[in-house]
Amino acid sequence: MSQADGYNFAYLDEQTKRMIRRAILKAVAIPGYQVPFGGREMPLPHGWGTGGMQVTASVIGTDDRLKVIDQGADDTTNAISIRRFFARTAGVETTEKTADATLIQTRHRIPERPLKNGQILIYQVPVPEPLRFIEPRDSETRKMHALREYGAMQVKLYEDVARFGHIATSYDYPVMVNGRYMMCPSPIPKFDNPKMDRMPALQLFGAGFEKRIYAVPPYTEVKSLDFDDHPFEVQQWEGSCEICGSDHSFLDEVITDDAGSKMFVCSDTDYCRERLAEQSAATTEEVAL
């Protein structure tokens, strides 16, 4: 694919990219710390991942292969338009295969297939400040981070247990990065939290509206908050994926007809497809024997 005329490579001007890269370098140097940056407007409304796109635009190179997912799927409108945007403005290859991608921009999921060192996972972040719910003032939350005053964060979990009898927070579940900074993992399901811990890939987070970038470098400790008597747990399902039979992936409930029939399928469409392909390859082999 060739790059469209009239735009700079990957749409953003070089000066903005340099500024964002400096923010990224700082973010990588201080895992979990939110670095402010002077973001540019992207040709998409906020809430469509403009923070993630600015990060992607700043790190993407001509030989990168980009995958974009939205809730685990490569084929939603949002994922397709972001993928097309970079195919057009950067002329890069795109892929739906997790294993083949060098860059993965994501909204609300981490792929099921373990990521490798050398890959970069870029999260779209709507609200970057984990302490926001209890402290509206930015000057104060900055101080709380600086002084590691995280008692208030535990208050959120306390409220969950008091109200529901267990920690009910199931998305954007707060984590402690490298034993130092409290961080929002963005609205991924807590099912994905353990994947962040010591992940071999670099994780970058871009919040477009609040203009913050943060990062988790490869192999960094990421710990989900909990209580001694209410330890962190991930979601579990009774059944397995009705397409590929997976009993270990994050499942979405899909309504299949007007009568309200439901079924559970993998939210990671690429993972599901790969498993099916493997299974049919195995069956073909058996038949051939």
Binding site: Q154, A162, F227, D229
Partner: peptide, 21 residues
Amino acid sequence: NVSAGANIGERLMAIGERHYG
């Protein structure tokens, strides 16, 4: 915006208490 229990518990959690009960 949080319960009475959380208001009282906050200082305990701030000094590192991690047992909900």
